[in-house]
């Protein structure tokens, strides 16, 4: 296939290379566009507009929000909460997951407790977190951070535990000490699990932060959405939701990039292996 391409004149190739991703992009966007069109049509005709607003109004509202700068303070607060909760949750999850993964004896004692806490619906803790950590950003950071923590913790823990004992034994015979085992065997082997946990945690960070803001807050996108819905302003509600959606998609794309970069040694991350002799 590559040979064929190579023998073609240069213009043909570049045209092809230009069109192919464009076509793929269109295919990807088509269902979304159809949905938006259906929404636009149904709004006011099949469903009352005050229930569902409509895409053109939402787009107008989004433009206003950014043009007047009205949304920035809310975005800044929510953004700060998201970043803090994510970084704290991932860091602690990685550290504890790794530590318990390496210490099976301690893990047998600690794991049931962690499991029990994991089972608590974190949302139910939201009011309590407000009492403990105040109405400011920290109650949201802790709530979202807890959700992120558990996802990352369990994935890293499972990753470290999944390592083949024979690989560890061989590395020891080849000369590895405990520290080197961690750096060259356990951590790289747990990396795919860590990245999976980090990716799964993105929407949970958003849920935690928004629920926290719904519960009780003085600023943030959650408050903005909550306020808009209690004042019958569906366009603003959906505008807020679209901002969250965009955030999750951007974060997800970044996570995918990171995964490609860090896991390029995995067969699924690249094309077919060369014909080996």
């Amino acid at each position: 296939m590559t040979d064929q391409l190579a023998t073609r004149p240069a213009e043909h190739r570049s045209l092809r290379q230009l069109w192919a991703p464009l076509g793929r992009g269109l295919m990807l966007a088509a269902p979304g566009i159809i949905m938006l069109c259906g929404w636009q049509y149904a709004s006011g005709r099949l469903i009352r507009e005050s229930y569902v607003s409509k895409p053109t109004d939402i787009a107008k509202r989004l433009y206003e929000l950014f043009a007047t700068g009205e949304i920035w303070p809310s975005l800044a607060v929510t953004g700060k909460e998201l970043v803090l909760s994510y970084v704290i949750g991932v860091t602690l999850g990685l550290l504890l997951g790794y530590a318990l993964g390496r210490a099976p004896r301690a893990a047998r004692i600690v794991e049931p407790y962690v499991m029990a806490f994991y089972g608590i619906p974190k949302i139910a803790l939201a009011p309590l977190f407000v009492i403990w950590f105040g109405i400011g950003i920290w109650s949201k950071v802790m709530l979202a951070g807890t959700m992120v923590f558990f996802l990352v913790f369990y994935n890293v823990y499972a990753g470290v535990r999944s390592i083949d004992r024979e690989v560890v034994n061989l590395a020891m015979v080849l000369g590895a000490n405990e520290r080197q085992l961690g750096r060259h065997i356990y951590l790289p082997a747990a990396a795919p699990f860590l990245l999976l946990g980090m990716r799964m945690a993105i929407p949970y960070a958003v849920i935690g932060v928004i629920v926290g803001e719904f519960t009780s807050s003085i600023a943030g996108l959650g408050l903005f959405i909550n306020y808009a819905s209690s004042t019958y302003d569906p366009a603003s509600v959906f505008a807020g939701i679209f901002i969250l959606l965009a955030f999750v998609m951007v974060m997800n794309a970044l996570a995918t990039r990171l995964e490609r970069r860090l896991l390029r040694w995995r067969p699924s991350m690249q094309g077919v292996p060369p014909e080996a002799s």
């Binding site: 020891m172 015979v173 080849l174 000369g175 590895a176 060259h184």
Partner: peptide, 30 residues
């Protein structure tokens, strides 16, 4: 653990996250 002996396991057991030459270098790195 006998770190002065050579061991060739049943399966090749190369570390999948290292390139071939990084795998060969590994004992020296250690």
């Amino acid at each position: 653990v006998n770190r002065t002996i050579g061991f060739v396991p049943q399966q090749a057991q190369l570390l999948p996250w290292k390139t071939m030459i990084e795998n060969v270098e590994f004992p020296l790195l250690l």
